[in-house]
Simulated assay, not measured.
Amino acid sequence: MSVKSRLSQWAITRFATPPFAPHAKDPRVADPNNALTLFDLSERVLAYKSNNDDPDGENPTIDDEASVAYELFNGDGKRVGRTKGVGRMLYQREDGGFVAYFSEEITLDDGTVVRTGGLVDDTRLTKGEQATIQAVAVAGPFKGAVGFRQFRPVVPHKEYQSNIVLYRR
């Protein structure tokens, strides 16, 4: 194993591992000012471009790639940010399902910039199930916060319900 791989493994283990049962008064996790919790967001498409002409995602191929942009709205209908992202089909499983990698940059109106990425069971997502991927704030008031992003299609490629949860450790 290369030195770079060992350092990467050490850093990820040290800095990205969530606390195990933090103390009740742990100021990093227990302080609401250290958390960004956005639930029940609505995402509406601004742009969707794919090399697959199937608008519903029912006929994926191993060569599928897409770029997307959405606006994010809270439950009151107020815009809270925008996303831009890419998705790429990686492989087809033996059972016929497809696995893709999704990545985004989310810019919230408070100045927080969140990078996301992760493997997604595209077959289940297309059927309406929720996907969850890693999220890290890379700029703005929550820079350094880690967590996750969840999303599920309401209308495939047009509207999603989503959640973003980040916390400082």
Rank of each mutant, 00 (worst) to 15 (best):
Q92A: 09
L72F: 13
D56Y: 11
N74E: 00
E58P: 05
R88H: 14
V99P: 02
G147W: 03
R79S: 13
F73T: 04
V86S: 14
R149W: 04
V80W: 07
E104K: 00
K84Y: 06
Q150F: 01
T132N: 04
G96V: 08
T112R: 08
N51Y: 09
I62Y: 10
D122T: 09
K127F: 05
Y91T: 12
K158G: 06
R124G: 04
T83F: 04
K143I: 10
F73D: 03
Q134G: 00
V86I: 11
D122Q: 13
G144N: 05
K78Q: 14
S50A: 13
Q130H: 00
F148W: 10
G96Y: 03
M89S: 14
F98H: 12
V146R: 13
V136H: 10
D109W: 05
D110W: 10
A66H: 05
A137Y: 08
R88L: 12
V146Y: 08
T83M: 02
F142Q: 11
F102G: 11
R82N: 15
L108W: 08
Q150I: 02
G97N: 15
G111L: 10
R115S: 06
P55K: 10
T116N: 01
P60C: 07
S103T: 14
L72G: 00
F98L: 03
K127R: 14
A69G: 12
I106E: 01
N52Q: 06
G81P: 03
D54Q: 09
Y70E: 05
E129F: 09
G97C: 13
R79W: 03
F98T: 04
R93L: 12
G81F: 05
F102T: 06
D121I: 03
F73V: 01
V138D: 08
V154P: 01
G87Q: 12
G57M: 10
G87D: 12
G128K: 10
T83L: 10
V138G: 06
E129T: 01
D122I: 01
R124T: 06
D76A: 14
D109I: 07
A131W: 00
L125R: 04
D54V: 13
G111I: 07
V155D: 09
D109Y: 07
E105R: 11
V154Y: 07
T107A: 14
L125Q: 02
Y101A: 13
D122K: 08
D63H: 13
V80E: 03
P156F: 12
R152K: 15
V113Q: 10
K158V: 13
H157M: 12
K143N: 10
T112P: 02
T123M: 03
A66W: 06
R115F: 09
V120H: 04
D56T: 14
D64K: 09
R88Q: 15
A139M: 05
L125G: 01
K78A: 15
N52S: 13
F73C: 01
D64L: 14
A139S: 15
G96K: 03
G117V: 02
V99Q: 07
T107I: 07
E71T: 15
Q134C: 00
E105V: 12
V136S: 06
T83G: 00
G140Y: 07
R93T: 10
I62L: 15
P141G: 07
V68G: 02
E65S: 11
V114L: 01
G140D: 12
R124P: 02
G118F: 03
Y70V: 02
G111R: 09
L72Y: 09
